[in-house]
């Protein structure tokens, strides 16, 4: 079979509106394993492809909580248990003085969670990906918009899918090697 040695079919569009319409049409047609590529964020595109949840805010919240508790716990332990030091008669548990470091560490952990979480969810860094085999894919970071329906989609059929993509206002449809 030809299609087993194929990553998918890729259609190229001129503008974000056409890509968004194409993604909606493909989802309505029943395709699920597909992705759209654009040189800038297009609002509603991920939703049009059927992506529902974004766990990133939760990851960041957890990161911030961990940072907050770690810092305050550490400062409290240093000042009251590990190395209590009398400074001008202030209490060992000088919690007002712990707030600035606690705050900074909260931000630090939350920011790291945001960046590392985003990269991990996106699977980056990724040295190789089949879509780069498409000859004009370099334009996906320039001025063109692409929709790729993957061969592993159960509804994928080389002839029917190609016909579907060509009926959209696409410039051209190419096969993408794995």
């Amino acid at each position: 079979m030809e299609s087993t040695r194929l990553y998918g079919l890729m259609a190229e569009f001129d503008n974000p509106a056409d890509l968004l319409a194409a993604a909606r049409a493909a989802y309505a047609e029943g395709y699920r394993k597909m992705d759209a590529y654009s040189p800038m964020p297009v609002h509603g595109l991920a939703e049009a492809l059927g992506v529902q949840k974004n766990p990133l805010p939760l990851i960041v919240l957890l990161g911030g909580l961990v940072g907050c508790l770690t810092a305050f716990g550490m400062l409290w332990a240093i000042e009251t248990i590990i190395y209590p030091l009398n400074v001008g008669g202030r209490p060992f548990n000088s919690w007002p003085a712990f707030i600035p470091i606690t705050f900074e560490t909260t931000i630090l952990f939350a920011a790291l969670a945001a960046v590392l979480g985003m990269l991990a969810l996106n699977g980056l860094p990724q040295p190789y990906h089949p879509v780069f085999n498409a000859p004009r894919f370099a334009l996906a970071t320039h001025n063109r918009f692409f929709l790729c329906i993957e061969a592993s989609d159960p509804k994928f059929d080389l002839v029917a899918t190609r016909r579907f993509l060509e009926n959209l206002p696409s410039r051209e449809v190419v096969e993408v090697a794995p």
Binding site: S38, P39, M40, A46, L49, N122, V131, A140
Partner: peptide
């Protein structure tokens, strides 16, 4: 690669 899910 500018994937829509990545962008989101």
């Amino acid at each position: 690669r500018g994937s829509a899910i990545h962008w989101q």
